[in-house]
Every structure is written in structure tokens, then in C-alpha cells.
């Protein structure tokens, strides 16, 4: 009994991925990010995000797994604008995960907060519980004007109406890299081998993706940067995205 309890406790402890192979983490350097939105389109292309149309956009029903938020500070002429890319934080203590009555969203052993489209019944509770507002509901079954559907990525499903969706850290790319590593008889994926679409496209290399369990990985180094912080840290969701705050040198 005591061992079972210990096991359970260990399982519940944040960072329990230690016993597994990876703890996928992303760092976003706000000092590099220019808000150019390349990542937004990269994600749209990679993950078959629908084109919702003007009317749906007007109702705030856009589906953008990654978006750029902007915050102004000051008044003209001493005014500053800051960008911050916002995407699923893959929280270790994810509020959305307790919300789902059917386990359509859960934490996998690699530290990913996954969304199982097939299992989702559309209670939308996860979206209410998510403090980062990065969960997107399919209000309709969206369609592509022919022949735009030929672009759809065959590695990613197209979601139907009534299903919640969100950033997956490009799990299809993670899978592919893991398979490739296995084919090469490597135990682990090499650092930098996996780049989610947003990370790949980022012109300023503001985003870094990798395994936090590997202390030498680039992302681990970024995570140790003194500029690092988590958005809404006080909510104790322990996100897997480390932001590096922008440097302000007021001259």
C-alpha cells in the first residue's frame, strides 16, 4: 500500500516526467520577438486551421493556435508597444485538464497537454478554465474553397463542428522525430531536431523548442536565463513555456 501511495505521489508531482524521456518546453525571447506574425501563418499552414470568414472573425471566433498579443504603455509621444506571442502553455498543472468530463484533454508522458479531438464532446469547460485563452472551439464544420483543401497537411486531422482544438506543440513533428530516432537506433531525439512550425518560421529566432530534461539542450539554457518568467505565474499552472522578458534600456 505504501509503495502504491508513493508511486501515486510521485506521479502527481510536477516534473514527474523525469522517469520518462522528455519534457517538451518552449522558450520565447521577447527581446527578439518583433510581432511579425510569421508564426501565426506557419501554424495555420501546418495544423490545418480553418479560414473562418469575416463574419465569424467579427464575432471573435477566429481560430489561431498562436496569436500575438500587444500591450501599449505610456501616451504619445512617449509610447511603447510590446508584443507577446500567446499559445497553449502546456501547463504541468493545467486547469483545463481537470475540467474535461471525458478526458478529451490530458497530460501525456512528454509533458504535453494533449487534446483528443475524437473524444471531445464540446462542453467547452476547458476553454473557460484556461487562463491563457488559447483553446479554440469549432463552432461550425469549416470548409475550404476548392482547391485550397489540397494544401491540408495529411499528418494533421481536420476538425469537425463541436470540437475543441488548440496548440499541440506540433505533435506530428515530435512523433516523426521520435520515429526517426528509433529508426536510427538512437534512444533520444537530438536537441533541435524538432521544431514546431512556429519555431521553424520565426525570423528572429525568438522561439526555441526542446527537452527540459536535458540540461544541455538549448531550451534548458534559455530557461535558466535570468530574464525568464512565466505568464500568470501566480496562478501556479507551471507552464511549459518560458518567456524571456524584453530588455528595456530607456535612453
Amino acid at each position: 500500500m505504501s509503495t502504491a501511495l508513493e508511486k501515486f505521489k510521485k506521479y502527481r508531482k510536477p516534473g514527474y516526467y523525469d522517469k520518462f524521456d522528455y519534457h517538451w518546453t518552449m522558450s520565447i525571447d521577447l527581446d527578439r520577438c518583433t510581432g511579425c506574425e510569421a508564426c501565426v501563418v506557419a501554424c495555420q499552414a501546418e495544423n490545418n486551421l480553418p479560414i473562418v470568414g469575416e463574419q465569424q472573425f467579427a464575432m471573435r471566433r477566429e481560430i489561431k493556435w498562436i496569436r500575438i498579443e500587444r500591450y501599449w504603455e505610456g501616451e504619445y509621444p512617449d509610447i511603447k508597444l510590446q508584443f507577446i506571442p500567446m499559445l497553449c502553455q502546456h501547463c504541468d498543472q493545467a486547469p483545463c485538464e481537470i475540467a474535461c468530463p471525458v478526458f478529451a484533454t490530458y497530460h501525456n508522458q512528454d509533458g504535453l497537454n494533449t487534446q483528443v479531438y475524437n473524444r471531445c464532446i464540446g462542453t467547452r469547460t476547458c476553454a473557460v478554465y484556461c487562463p491563457y485563452e488559447v483553446r479554440f472551439f469549432n463552432w461550425f464544420t469549416y470548409e475550404w474553397d476548392e482547391p485550397l483543401e489540397q494544401q491540408l497537411n495529411p499528418d494533421v486531422t481536420v476538425r469537425e463542428k463541436g470540437v475543441m482544438e488548440k496548440c499541440t506543440f506540433c505533435i506530428q513533428r515530435i512523433r516523426q522525430a521520435k520515429d526517426a530516432a528509433k529508426d536510427d537506433s538512437r534512444r533520444r531525439v537530438r536537441d533541435g531536431e524538432i521544431k514546431p512550425a512556429c519555431v521553424q518560421s520565426c525570423p528572429t529566432e525568438a522561439m526555441v523548442f526542446g527537452d527540459l530534461n536535458d540540461p544541455d539542450s538549448q531550451v534548458s539554457k534559455m530557461a535558466r536565463n535570468p530574464r525568464g518568467y512565466h505568464v500568470l505565474e501566480e496562478l501556479n499552472t507551471t507552464p511549459s513555456i518560458v518567456y524571456l522578458k524584453r530588455v528595456h534600456t530607456d535612453g
Binding site: A58, R60, E69, Y229, L232, L244, K245
Partner: peptide, 19 residues
């Protein structure tokens, strides 16, 4: 109605940018 994604573009004193 100007269609945009921004809600409020001030941080309302919240520590979103880590500053």
C-alpha cells in the same frame, strides 16, 4: 464594427510581460 482580435491593449497593471 472594426474587426480585430485585440480586446484591451493595456496590461491593467498585470505582470504579463514580466516587467
Amino acid at each position: 464594427h472594426v474587426i480585430k482580435t485585440d480586446g484591451t491593449t493595456r496590461d491593467l497593471g498585470r505582470n504579463i510581460l514580466g516587467q
